[in-house]
């Protein structure tokens, strides 16, 4: 690392980093701005946050978002981990196809996923609501969990499981005592990804939510469409805080586990 980077390059990259973080920082800053309409700074206020508490729809949407994210994360983590374990086993017919197919839901435009689920639910006359949102979130989080856990499994020395077998543990015990503890960080990472994906998702939820499935992003979207108002800044800041807390908490737990 003896080579020095040219000054113009460092300046350019610094600029990109500023662009990458400025919008959200500005947004959070403005959630404390007393001015209602203009972008001019007219003093610090917590007024917009106080307003949030008077809005039962926002609190309801927040609670729903957390419920959906929790249930969908548990389902997607269990199913996705099982898929990864299946794929990590020695070769079987169709393995490459299944693995390639896992990426399909990841790359499919959300609008297509959302619309096709909407068509299905309408066709089989399933009423839209919390249930359909949870089902949809589990479906799009599952491949992410599987891919993350699979990467961890691939990096694991298979002879560790074999060592457990030769030391007298049967397959189930070897899984419990060796594979699972070593896989835990990967499963945690997958679950964390699923939780934030679910918490943040707007497009797919928008189509399968129906009247009873208004999550926080869906509510924020409808507020934005109705017109810009400072309350949205405050809700957005809450959403940012929520995901940041999740990540920080997970990093904490992961850190302690690793120590």
């Amino acid at each position: 690392m003896t080579r020095r980077l040219p000054g113009w390059l460092v300046a350019l990259v610094t600029g990109v980093f500023v662009l990458l973080h400025l919008p959200v920082l500005v947004l959070v800053a403005y959630s404390f701005n007393a001015s209602r309409y203009s972008a001019d700074w007219s003093g610090f206020t917590l007024h917009w946050y106080a307003r949030l508490l008077e809005r039962p729809d926002i609190l309801r949407a927040l609670r729903l978002s957390l419920t959906v994210a929790t249930v969908a994360t548990v389902l997607a983590t269990v199913l996705g981990t099982l898929v990864a374990l299946g794929l990590a086993r020695s070769g079987f017919r169709g393995k490459r196809m299944v693995e390639g197919g896992l990426y399909l839901p990841i790359v499919t435009p959300e609008i297509v996923t959302g619309i096709s689920l909407l068509i299905l639910f309408v066709a089989v006359r399933v009423p839209l609501g919390v249930g359909t949102v949870i089902v949809a979130h589990t479906a799009f989080c599952l491949p992410f969990v599987a891919v993350v856990v699979l990467a961890r499994l691939r990096g694991m020395d298979r002879s560790l499981e074999e060592a457990a077998l030769i030391l007298g543990a049967d397959e189930a015990t070897a899984f419990r005592r060796v594979t699972l503890p070593l896989l835990a960080p990967g499963i945690m990472a997958g679950a964390l990804l699923a939780f934030t994906l679910s918490l943040d998702d707007f497009v797919i939820t928008f189509f399968v939510a129906g009247p009873g499935g208004t999550t926080l992003p869906v509510l924020v979207y409808s507020m934005v469409r109705r017109g810009i108002e400072p309350t949205i800044n405050a809700v957005s800041a809450v959403l940012v805080l929520l995901t940041s807390l999740t990540v920080a908490l997970a990093a904490r737990v992961g850190g302690e586990r690793g120590a």
Binding site: V83, G86, R89, P105, L117, I119, V135
Partner: peptide, 21 residues
């Protein structure tokens, strides 16, 4: 064994991703 592990997850993706498509 592999298919037993894959089964539930793939079924979910079949029902709520592949069939809708």
């Amino acid at each position: 064994g592999a298919w037993a592990l894959l089964g539930p997850g793939l079924l979910w993706l079949l029902l709520f991703f592949a069939i809708p498509l």
